[in-house]
C-alpha cells in the first residue's frame, strides 16, 4: 500500500517528453508555473487544462498513474476549496444565507479555480519533471542551469548531488518503512485505530529505526562513493551530455505561446456590459 505513492517518481519511457533536455523541461515548468498563477478566468483555465491533457497524451503515461499521484493531496484540495467557498465575500445577493454561513457566486468560482490551479500545478510539473525525467537528468539539468551561481560561491554541484541521492533512496526507504511496519505489526503494533495523537505516537517506533538505518546507509554510501573516487565536481565528466536540440526550441516556443495567451487573457480587463452570456462565463474574473 505504501509503495503506491507515485508522486515524485520517475517512469522510464521513450516519449518526446522523456527525450526533451531536462533544462528545457525545467524552463518550461517555470513558465507554466508563472502562467498558472496568472490564470483567473474560465477561458484561461480551459486553455491550461487542454495543455495539461496534451502533455499527458504526449508522455504516454497512463491516466490512472496521474490520478494516483493526485490522490494524496485530495484532502488538502477539498479543504482549501471548502474554506474558499465559505470565506469569500461577494457583491451580489448570497446564494445561501444560513446562520453564519453565506455563500456567494464568487466563493464557488474561486474554490473551483483554486482547486484547478493546484491540480494543474501538480499535473504539469510532474508530467514535465518527475514522471518523465530521471532524477539524475533532473539534477544534471538543475546543476547546469544554476551553474552561473558557482561563481558567487554557491555549492551547486553538492546540492544537485544531495537531491539526486535523496530521490534515489525514496523507493529504498519506502521499502524499508514497509518492512519495519510489518515487523512492528507482527509484534502487535496497531497503526490504524485510535485518535490522531495515538496514531502519531504509533509512528515513533517506525521512525526511530528508520532514522537510525538511514544514518547507517548514509555512512556506507559515503564510503562507497569515496571508494569510487568521488571528490565533488573536481575534474568530473558526464556520461550523458546535455544538448539542446530543435525540439527543445519548439517546445519552449509552444509553451511560451500558450503561457503568453493565458497571461494576456488574464490581464485584459473584463467588461460585463459589452458581450453576451458566453463572454461572461468565459471571461468572468476573480
Amino acid at each position: 500500500m505504501i509503495s503506491d505513492i507515485t508522486l515524485g517518481q520517475f517512469f522510464p519511457g521513450y516519449s518526446v517528453l522523456h527525450k526533451l533536455d531536462p533544462r528545457t523541461k525545467l524552463i518550461l515548468s517555470v513558465i507554466a508555473i508563472v502562467a498558472i498563477f496568472f490564470a483567473n478566468s474560465a477561458i484561461t483555465f480551459i486553455i491550461f487544462t487542454l495543455g495539461a491533457v496534451l502533455l499527458i497524451a504526449v508522455s504516454r503515461i497512463s491516466f490512472s498513474v496521474i490520478v494516483k499521484g493526485i490522490k494524496p493531496i485530495l484532502f488538502i484540495l477539498l479543504f482549501t476549496a471548502i474554506l474558499n467557498v465559505f470565506m469569500t465575500g461577494g457583491e451580489g445577493e448570497p446564494l445561501v444565507d444560513f446562520w453564519i454561513f453565506r455563500i456567494y457566486t464568487e466563493g464557488i468560482v474561486r474554490a473551483v479555480f483554486m482547486a484547478l490551479r493546484v491540480m494543474l500545478l501538480i499535473v504539469v510539473t510532474s508530467m514535465l519533471l518527475t514522471y518523465t525525467t530521471s532524477p539524475i537528468a533532473l539534477t544534471d539539468g538543475l546543476e547546469s542551469l544554476l551553474s552561473p551561481l558557482k561563481k558567487i560561491g554557491v555549492p551547486v554541484h553538492t546540492f544537485a548531488m544531495m537531491m539526486s541521492i535523496a530521490l534515489r533512496f525514496i523507493p529504498t526507504l519506502v521499502e524499508e518503512t514497509d518492512k519495519i511496519m510489518n515487523a512492528q505489526k507482527s509484534r502487535g503494533a496497531d497503526f490504524s485505530s485510535g485518535g490522531l495523537v495515538k496514531r502519531a505516537k504509533a509512528l515513533i517506533p517506525i521512525l526511530i529505526p528508520l532514522i537510525v538505518s538511514s544514518f547507517k546507509r548514509a555512512e556506507e554510501l559515503a564510503t562507497a562513493m569515496e571508494c569510487r573516487c568521488y571528490r565533488g565536481d573536481v575534474g568530473r565528466t558526464k556520461l550523458v551530455k546535455l544538448e539542446y536540440k530543435g525540439r527543445d526550441l519548439l517546445w519552449i516556443l509552444l509553451v511560451a505561446l500558450v503561457a503568453g495567451a493565458v497571461i494576456t487573457l488574464s490581464v485584459l480587463p473584463y467588461n460585463p456590459e459589452s458581450y453576451g452570456v458566453l463572454y461572461d462565463i468565459l471571461f468572468y474574473k476573480i
Binding site: 530521471s134 532524477p135 539524475i136 539526486s164 534515489r168 529504498t172 556506507e220 562507497a224
Partner: peptide, 12 residues
C-alpha cells in the same frame, strides 16, 4: 561492500 543498496548512487 556488503549491502548492495548502499553502494548504488544512481537511479539507472
Amino acid at each position: 561492500f556488503q549491502n548492495p543498496d548502499n553502494q548504488l548512487v544512481a537511479t539507472v
